[in-house]
Amino acid sequence: MQKTATLDADDMADSSIKSSVKVTNANPLDITDEHVTVGSYEVNNAKMSIKNVNVYYGDKQAIFDVSVDIGKNEVIAMIGPSGCGKSTFLRALNRMNDTVDGCRVEGDIRMDGQDLYSPKLDVVELRARVGMVFQKPNPFPKSIYDNVAYGPKIHGLADTRVDLDEMVERSLRRASLWDEVKDRLYQAGTGLSGGQQQRLCIARAIAVSPEVILMDEPCSALDPIATARIEELIEELSQNFTIAIVTHSMQQAARVSQRTAYFHLGKLIEVNPTEQVFTMPEHALTESYITGRFG
């Protein structure tokens, strides 16, 4: 059970970010079932709000009682050691875990107040609103054009060929890939370089104008230059989209995100503005991680 004591909302009316009272443990490096998320895990203008979420793979529990809000048009980074459940958590947000056999999600995940796990919800529509970019670039074995046009086609977003052309161009421009591929739109998307492929996947995701984009370590398979391009892109995209990004690189989290969430063994330890997490983390575990004591 989450035991975070949150101050009364009225007291914090001047601030958009609610803050929790810091509870100190006897030994801060021990996390027990009675663990507490420290920091500002709730926001006022929440796009998505996640409350007390548990995720199980069969009998094994992967996520323990996670609660966090994702604000509108913010970039939230999720960091933590390997196997801490960051990706699992991310995949719970657009119900990609449904495709995994034996995976079960408990708790309350809402977007704009709508329960994402309600039986009435249309998963297909949800995934059109919450796009996803994967760790390894996974363009379809089709032409560059068809890759980007895929989403608009299946959702019937374009009435004419001209509309579709426009949509493809706009998405490619926003993914800052247009200039590189405009002369070979009808060649295979798999023929691009790794960084270009990943930007193609981002273009593909934004072509259906989602509200939230989930990125699961989008740069881990890329070289530093391609990574820099993607990071620039994330910054541009954050003007129009809400972005949740899982990353292994703390520098990347520091560069692109406004808030950072630190996960440890399936538990959300701390959520705070990125600057604070990297300069004066509240929780001892966070500090150990960012100073490189483990991870």
Binding site: N94, M96, T99, V124, E125, L126, R127, A128, R129, G131, M132, F134, K136, N138, P139, F140, P141, K142, Y150, G151, I154, H155, C201, R204, A205, V208
Partner: peptide
């Protein structure tokens, strides 16, 4: 590869759209 299916499903394609438009062509 499962990544192909994931990519398509994450775009909001249904299972049968994924099979028809991505898996079978591949």
């Amino acid at each position: 590869p499962q990544a192909m299916r994931d990519g398509s499903l994450a775009m909001g394609a249904t299972h049968s759209e994924t099979v028809r438009r991505v898996v079978i062509p591949a």
